[in-house]
Design a binder for these strands. Sequence first.
DNA 1: TTAATCTTTAGAGTTAGCTCTAAGTCAAGA
DNA 2: TCTTGACTTAGAGCTAACTCTAAAGATTAA
Lengths: 142, 142
Amino acid sequence: MSYSIGEAAKMVGLTAHTLRFYDKEGLLPFVKKTSSGLRAFTESDIEWLKIIECLKGTGLPLKQIKQYIDWCMEGDATIPQRLNMFIEQKKHVEEQKAKWEKHLEKINFKIKYYEDAAKHGDLNVFERNPKLLEEKKRLFKD
Amino acid sequence: MSYSIGEAAKMVGLTAHTLRFYDKEGLLPFVKKTSSGLRAFTESDIEWLKIIECLKGTGLPLKQIKQYIDWCMEGDATIPQRLNMFIEQKKHVEEQKAKWEKHLEKINFKIKYYEDAAKHGDLNVFERNPKLLEEKKRLFKD
DNA sequence: TTAATCTTTAGAGTTAGCTCTAAGTCAAGA
DNA sequence: TCTTGACTTAGAGCTAACTCTAAAGATTAA
């Protein structure tokens, strides 16, 4: 059993246009076609799409995703490169998470700031709450 | 005391080109110019840049950042909108963090997978370790 | 004062990742 | 069989966010 491009697209939350674009970019060399030229996505192809989505979702550019797919197609000799790619991507994800954590602190500060401002209808927040000014200095020092 | 565009750029990790681009896009209405037409960034302007960087870093498009800056320039009447924007952005950041967490699980699975593959020089990982197959099914089921 | 190194503008060019169109082909239900 | 809707390709167009260029003016160190 296999899926049309529209069905596959729905299953992974993309459009058929996007899947064709990925195919054109060489990201889907594993997708076979029927005798009449229609793409037929297998269950295994859907799993490939999910891995592509995972890598894309963590900020890996399509070119590097293609590099990974190419390695997969080349066979067992490229296992070390693939392992290395995932290790690098894990590092990248953890760096990003730390960055988002820092951004979140600043956003939380802004929420406190504007909550007080909204309550009083003006921006004299630091006069009312000097501790918040200290927090601001700490958060925006670097 | 104030900073030239090049100094300001260095302080926030952007290029002078990018700062000029932001200015052209209306993101830096607060930056004043000297009598001879050079931009002079104050300490306060540098803080604005850091907030812009924070919002950009959490994925807010420049257009929406401009909207926020515009609200700030309009005065106290827009405090509720600004508060709301940060609350929405906090939601967004937390959704993203959850997504990255899920991606990270998949990446960790792939690392385990390829570590075993690298050790044995082939991809018969699931035959050697059926538990990993179960983990794969769990992680990629949706 | 002069040379080197900024900075200014307007505007063109680039990159990534889609997104859509046109013109035609294929498949499934009435 | 006919119609409707999904599929095919090549290729154009789009958006966001830069990135760079050219030509001219400003600043700074020797």
